[in-house]
Each structure stands twice: as C-alpha cells, then as structure tokens.
Amino acid sequence: MIQVNNLFHSYKKNEDYAVEDVSFAIAKAEIFGFLGPSGAGKSTTQGVLSGLLELQKGSIIIDGQARKTYPDKAFYNRIGVGFEKPNVYKKLNGYDNLKFHASLYDGDTEDPKTVLEMVGLADEGKKLAGEYSKGMMQRLGFARSMINKPDIWFLDEPTMGLDPNTANSIKRIIRKKQSEGTTIFLTTHNMYVADELCDRVAFIVDGKIAAMDSPKNLKLKYGNPTVSVEFMEDGILKKKDFGMTGKDKGDLEKFIREHDIKTLHSGEPTLEEIFIRLTGRGLE
C-alpha cells in the first residue's frame, strides 16, 4: 500500500539530513510503528509522508502512484493525522472543533457526536476545548484525526500523557480501525505502545533505520530470554537468573533439581532492551 524508497529530508536543504536513506513498505491494514528517541527522525518521516513537509529526495508510492513534491487534494481527503500536541481551537467547544474539521473534507465524514462518544467526551462536547484537561484535549485531537474516516492514519504518540484507562480505550479504537482496513503509521518512543499495537516496527536513530521487523521477531532475533528463579537457602529467599539456551539450560535443570524452588519466571527482553542493544541508545 505504502512504499517508501531511499527517503532523505533536510530542513536546511543541505547534506545535514534529519532523515537519511529510509526505505520501508507498509501493507494495507497494517500497524507500522516508528520507534526511536526524540529527534531521531520519526516526526520528520511522518511529516513527509503526510504531506506537511515536501518530498525532497527519494520516492513515496501509495497504491502504485508516485507522490509529487506535495500530495494532491485526493490524498489529504483519505488521510488522518494525529499530532503529539492536540492542535484544537481552544475557544471553540469540542463539538464545533470536530464539525469544523469535518467541513474541510470532500467525502463522507464521521458524526462529531459519535467520535466524541468513542473517545469518551460525549458529555463534554459543549464545553470549550480550552477548559479541557490535557488528556481530554489529547483525546479531542485524536478524535479530530479520524473525523474524515481515513484509510491511512498517521498517529504521533497517540497515548502520551493519558491515564492507563484512557490509553487503553485509544488503543482499542486503533485496533478497531485496523480491523476495518485502516493502514496505520504510528510514531512513538513508548516501547510498550509499539509492542502492544504494532504488527511491525522500525527502529530509527539519527535519521536512519537500524532494524525493522515484528516486535516478536526482533525479540527472538536479538533478545536473550532468561528464567528468574526464587529459592530458599538457609531460611532466606534468594534469586538467580539463567539463560534459556546452551549451557545455561542444563545449569537451570540441575539447579531446579537441587534447590527448594519457590517461583519461576521466564524473562522476555523488552523492545527497549533490544533497541539499546542494537543502537547503543535509550528511547527517552
């Protein structure tokens, strides 16, 4: 559905690239995550893909059609973009914000009331957006991004600053949209969100892709699973970690036989650990 080849972008239009030689493909109804620390090039890539920034070098092919410097009107009609900052009119109420944005599109749009209900703001629709809490404003911005029923949805840190309940409801909406056929490009520095939602992720550092695969494959390929054992010795509860391959495997079996084992936990490496292992950098 979306094919990106050798994408470069420089804000100063020189050799100082914010995104450098980035290539990837996203299938229809796939959730593709861009995982990286602040300033890694995630938002720039999303900016170029969504048409906020010009296409300087490289190619973007969507449904077989190559993008020009800026996309055409038809492209903007089919995309939704959720930003890290809510981008809402604070002097308008939630309902009017959505109604205004819906009026900008040519095709069929969602009913603002339905979308407000989806994000848990049904009772706050008549309240000025400026009076919303940060989380409510974030949800309104998220609702705005899906008002035109997009079939390509760009989401930048969609759960940032939300309480766990609200974050879960946002994740549910994302999965529901995916099941309805929406292709989702998600940028985040939150490994849990990426792990939970994305079919595939790309690690991006200094504008370059360091690795790309499904979270599971990345963990299998680059991770080192462990087993954590809690046992009693001399009346004290102690803990010891074992690897799950090679010599460690034999040592673990022997240890279990010889000790008073209380608990056994398998330890799967997190995406962040894989990220650090591959890039030498943290995600914050």
């Binding site: 048409g51 995309i79 981008n87 900008l104 911005g141």
Partner: peptide, 10 residues
C-alpha cells in the same frame, strides 16, 4: 498549531 491540523486537510 491548529494550522498544522488544517494543513493535512484538503
């Protein structure tokens, strides 16, 4: 930044 949201509309 409402202009950003506007810019990704048609």
């Amino acid at each position: 930044e409402t202009i950003r949201a506007y810019r990704v509309s048609p």
